[in-house]
């Protein structure tokens, strides 16, 4: 063997960095979540008051449940729209298929904040929709009907996260061997039976994994609710964010982020379990 030492040192350094830069910071904020504030100073302590506050105070716990419900709705919309689209693209062939796939994937590359801006410039008070409706005489004056309400948050999040739902469904559909579908057809199954008993079950684990990841993406979003929801779009991410800004209670914010982390980890674990049950 040649000199082993430099290699081991280099590896040790490389292997330590993810631990130092990812796991240690997560550990740090978990520790902080047990501290508390006294005279706007963070005081080291070990108490569960932050967690107790969260569960006792409906303002926070209710927001948490409301956010879970919002994300469930976003995920449901993304699945209901994303599944037929992924299926449609999957059934095309050649250049058309590649082109459609490119079109559905391209929004993933576009800047998140830019997409938000463009949606606002359509729905907003001075947006195109209002201008057009006023111009056509349908509305007397620009309306705030399309923005700063819960529906706007839901719709905007669905538009933002739909491409994230389409791609995993398409990728699982694509892994289904063509001869399975052909065999089903040769044996006399109708197109609906083929879909119901061959395509759908085979793609199910991947579809569920895609849905769960869409849920996690929506769960962590704190900019969309602010930008299109205004005061009505008060989600859990925004509550946490405000503890690190104006409210200035880092330990309490850390405790709520720990709850967010636990929720996200649970969903990611479910997603990877579902993906591991994929038999193709």
């Amino acid at each position: 063997m040649e000199r082993l030492l430099p290699r081991v040192l280099l590896f040790a350094l490389a292997a330590c960095l993810p631990l130092v830069l990812v796991l240690a910071p997560i550990g740090t904020f978990l520790v902080l979540s047990f501290f508390h504030m006294e005279n706007s100073q963070i005081v080291p302590s070990f108490w569960l008051a932050n967690y107790a506050n969260f569960f006792r105070n409906w303002t926070y716990f209710g927001t948490f449940l409301g956010t879970l419900w919002l994300c469930a709705q976003v995920t449901a919309i993304c699945m209901l729209l994303g599944y037929p689209i992924a299926w449609f693209v999957w059934r095309r062939s050649g250049a058309l298929r590649y082109f459609l796939l490119l079109l559905t994937v391209l929004p993933l590359f576009m800047s998140y904040i830019v997409k938000l801006y463009t949606i606002r410039s359509v729905l907003g008070l001075n947006g195109l929709l209002n201008q057009a409706l006023v111009g056509l005489g349908i509305l007397g004056k620009p309306s705030l009907l399309f923005m700063f309400n819960q529906h706007a948050v839901l719709g905007t999040m669905a538009v933002l996260y739909l491409p994230f739902a389409i791609l995993p469904i398409f990728l699982t559909l694509e892994r289904i061997p063509a001869n399975l579908v052909e065999a089903s057809r040769d044996l006399g199954a109708s197109p609906w039976s083929t879909f119901r008993y061959v395509v759908f079950p085979l793609a199910l684990p991947g579809t569920i994994a895609g849905a769960l990841f869409t849920f996690v993406l929506a769960l962590g979003d704190f900019v969309t609710p602010q930008m299109v929801g205004g005061t009505t779009g008060f989600t859990f991410g925004r509550v946490i964010w405000s503890q690190f800004g104006l409210a200035y209670n880092w330990p309490f914010g850390a405790a709520m982020a720990a709850i967010l982390l636990a929720t996200a980890l649970l969903i990611i674990a479910l997603a990877s379990y579902s993906a591991s049950r994929q038999r193709i």
């Binding site: 962590g220 991410g237 982390l261 996200a264």
Partner: peptide, 12 residues
């Protein structure tokens, strides 16, 4: 993970 977790863990 949600970016908010990564962001604030590094901030803290």
């Amino acid at each position: 993970l949600p970016p908010i977790v990564t962001g604030l863990s590094l901030l803290v």
